[in-house]
Design a protein around this nucleic acid. Structure first.
Lengths: 184, 184
DNA sequence: AGGATCATGTAACCGGTTACATGATTAC
DNA sequence: GTAATCATGTAACCGGTTACATGATCCT
C-alpha cells in the first residue's frame, strides 16, 4: 500500500520513466522500501488509471522513446493526504530470515554459525560503505539542485540506517565472542 | 517461504495446536517473523499434505478437542536441510512505512514531524519493556525445561532486537534535537 | 564484436492481509 | 452476566516475487 506513495512522492521531485523510478528507489529509498521493476510498472499503470499520474511519450532523435510519468494535481492531493495521516502503530513488520536461523542455531555446529555471522558482519560493512557513498551523493545532489530542505530529511533517514547497521555489526562482534567463549 | 520452517522449528521443541503456534510466534519469533493466525492454519494444512507434520485430535473431558500438530521425520529432515543452507544475501528486505514518511517530511510541518518521531520513540520504549519481559521469561523457561542450549541462541536474538531498538531510540532523540535546532 | 546498461513490459505464482464465521470456556 | 481468551478455520483480495520476452544503445 505504501509503494504507490513512494512513487508519487518521488514524482513530486521530478517526472520520470518507470526505469528511472526504479533507479531512484535503489539509490534513495532502498533502505526503507524495496521494489522490483515489474511491480513499479504495474503500479504506474494502476496510478494512471486512477488519474494520480499521467504519462507522455517523449520522442528523442537518435534515441528511442521514453515514457515519462508526471504526478497530477489529484495525485499530489492523495500523496499529501497519505503523508499527513501516520498510522497508529509505527513499527514495521519484521520478516528476517537470517535471525530466525540464528534462533534455531542450536541444531547447527557452532563453527558454522560463526561462519554465517561473520558473513553477515561483512555484508553489513559493505552496506555501510554504500550508505556512505549515498550520503555523499545526496549532499552533492542537493547542493546542485537546491533540494536543501529535502536533504535534511534524507540525511536523517540515512543516519538511521547507519545507526542500525552499526548496531548489527556490534551485535555480530559480541555474538562471535560469546560463541567462542562458550567453547571453553 | 520461511514461515513453514519457523513452524517446523517450533514443533521440534514441542507438539502444538495452531493456536499455540501463533502464541509461541508472538512470544519468541515476533522480533524476527510476523505471522497471522489465518496464515498459520493454511500453512499447517499444506505441511500436513506434504507429510512434514502430522496431526492428532486430543479429546479432553470437560474441554473441547484440540488438534495437535507434530513434526514428522520427513519434516525434521526438511527443516535441517533448510537450516544448513543459509542464503547468499543475509540482509532482510526492508519495508518501513514510517521511515519512508520521514523521508518525505519536507512536505509536513516540523512540529508534526517531531510529534510523530516522539510517538515512534515511545513505541520503541514500549517494545524494549516487552523484550525485557521476554528475556526474563526465556531464562526462567529454559531453566525449568532444560532448554539451556537453545536458550543461548534465543538470548542472542533478543539481544540483537534490543540493540537495534536502542539505536532507533538514539536516532529519534538526535533527530528531535536536530529539528529543534534547525528552527533557530 | 560483445557485454553492460537502458528501457518497457507480461504472466503466473505465491505469500501475507483483511474480513468473516462460529462457539466453548474461564475469570471476574 | 459478560468480557477475555481459547480454539479452528474459510474466502477473497492484494502486494511482492520469479521468470520470461524483447530490443536498442553505449562503451571498450
Amino acid at each position: 500500500m505504501s509503494l504507490r506513495f513512494g512513487i508519487l512522492g518521488l514524482l513530486k521531485y521530478k517526472s520520470m520513466t518507470g526505469y528511472d523510478l526504479q533507479k531512484t528507489f535503489n539509490s534513495s529509498l532502498q533502505f526503507m522500501w524495496n521494489a522490483k521493476t515489474s511491480q513499479i510498472y504495474r503500479e504506474l499503470k494502476t496510478l494512471e488509471s486512477q488519474q494520480l499520474v499521467s504519462s507522455s511519450v517523449i520522442e528523442q532523435e537518435s534515441k528511442f522513446d521514453r515514457k515519462v510519468y508526471t504526478i497530477t494535481t489529484k495525485g499530489n492531493e492523495a500523496f499529501l493526504r497519505w503523508l499527513q495521516k501516520f498510522p497508529q502503530d509505527l513499527n514495521a513488520p519484521i520478516r528476517d530470515e537470517f535471525i530466525m536461523r540464528i534462533f534455531f542455531s542450536e541444531f547447527m555446529d557452532d563453527d558454522e554459525v560463526s561462519f554465517e555471522i561473520r558473513r553477515y558482519q561483512k555484508q553489513q560493512e559493505d552496506l555501510l560503505q554504500i550508505l556512505n557513498l549515498i550520503q555523499n551523493k545526496a549532499e552533492l545532489d542537493a547542493k546542485e539542485n537546491s533540494y536543501e530542505r529535502s536533504l535534511f530529511y534524507w540525511l536523517l533517514t540515512i543516519k538511521r540506517a547507519m545507526k542500525s547497521i552499526e548496531a548489527e555489526k556490534e551485535w555480530a562482534e559480541e555474538s562471535l565472542a560469546l560463541i567462542e567463549s562458550r567453547k571453553g
